[in-house]
């Protein structure tokens, strides 16, 4: 198994922007739509290289999404990118009907996701779109953990057929996957083996989970760390195996605790192998202005919360928490 060490840091949006150029070279049907922030979401790289296949739509996310559907239904592979706040939720109905119901081959890149956008504040810190997008039939929803995975994921979504969305961030985040690290839509990846507790994370929280695992190891606890970039389709097997092997799970994401990766893990384990789960994420609140690192601490999105949650999940497992027995058995106790 590959050993993951810190190789540097780079924003995931760079991976997205560079991948569009790679895709543009491979496939002349790739076209890109701009929403007036082409520099920040790095579609400007494609614009410079393939000006004839780039169209500026202006600040009109609903229109861009539906234009993309029209292009897709005419055989093109359109990518539209903006800030996730505006290209996942502002245009939610357009995504649902024109892209997904049509099974149109539309690709959306949602940048500046999560609290780590920093000083721009709550309006720009999208924390809800994973929950929405993963409920849409036909949708593929990806949350890469680092720059290189963002690049691989963008290329993969450009080469599959069907509506797809990728979430990426503004600030630099740790880089630790390599050219040989596998990436496949629908697959989660075990980054670290362990059978005491499973830490399942996506995006920037994956490295925090690795740090938490290191700290847990100092206490003799071996945590299994799972990077789950493919929110939909979801890797049921890797999650259920982790639930069975470890009996306790922590999920971690830069998203509301409701409905995102944590929700997906809870649904899958509830059906196949219920175990105690602790959820690390933003706790039903809006974000706010501040320095990105400061906000990650204030909103409880660091290895420390993952560490504490791991201990809690294990304790609930070991105490045989009532919630995980059959009602019939519990009734015997109460008499």
């Amino acid at each position: 198994m590959e050993e993951y060490t810190l190789l540097g840091s780079k924003p995931t949006r760079h991976g997205f922007g560079e991948a569009l150029v790679v895709l543009g070279e491979r496939n002349e049907n790739i076209v890109v739509l701009g929403g007036d922030i082409t520099g920040s979401v790095m579609t400007s790289l494609f614009k410079d290289k393939f000006p004839d296949r780039f169209f500026s739509i202006g600040i009109a996310e609903q229109n861009a999404t539906t234009i993309a559907a029209g292009l897709a239904l005419s055989g093109k592979v359109p990518f539209f990118a903006s800030y996730g706040a505006f290209c996942a939720l502002r245009n939610a109905d357009q995504i649902r009907i024109s892209c997904c119901y049509n099974e149109a081959n539309v690709k959306i890149g949602g940048g500046h996701a999560g609290i780590s956008v920093g000083p721009d504040g709550a309006t720009h810190q999208v924390l809800e779109e994973v929950a929405y997008l993963r409920t849409l039939p036909h949708m593929t929803m990806l949350v890469p953990c680092d720059y290189l995975e963002a690049k691989k994921a963008t290329i993969a979504m450009g080469e599959m057929v069907g509506p797809a969305y990728i979430r990426f961030g503004r600030s630099p985040v740790p880089l630790y996957t390599t050219e040989t690290t596998p990436f496949e839509i629908g697959k989660a990846l075990v980054l670290r083996e362990g059978n005491d507790v499973a830490l399942i994370a996506c995006g920037a929280l994956v490295w925090e989970a690795m740090l938490a695992a290191q700290e847990l190891a100092k206490k003799g606890i071996q945590a299994r760390v799972i990077n789950n970039p493919s929110i939909k389709p979801f890797d049921v097997e890797t999650t259920v195996t982790a639930a069975r092997d470890c009996g306790a799970i922590v999920t971690a994401e830069e998203h509301q605790v409701h409905g995102g990766l944590g929700g997906a893990v809870a649904e899958v384990t509830a059906k196949n192998s219920p175990v105690p789960i602790e959820f690390v994420g933003v706790k039903d609140s809006f974000g706010g202005s501040g320095d990105p690192d400061e906000l990650m601490i204030k909103f409880g999105l660091t290895w420390k919360e993952i560490y504490a949650s791991a201990l809690k999940a294990m304790e609930r497992r070991d105490k045989g928490s009532v919630g995980f027995r059959r009602v019939k058995d519990v009734e015997q106790y109460i008499g």
Binding site: R90, D120, H124, G288
Partner: peptide, 29 residues
């Protein structure tokens, strides 16, 4: 401006209670 917990959010936040701010905004239109 733009600091943690400020009433002067990077985009207006009605939740912060700055006198005279009628609405949160930042999503254009």
């Amino acid at each position: 401006l733009r600091q943690y917990n400020t009433r002067l959010q990077g985009h207006p936040g009605r939740d912060m209670g700055l006198p005279g701010i009628e609405t949160s905004s930042g999503s254009l239109g």
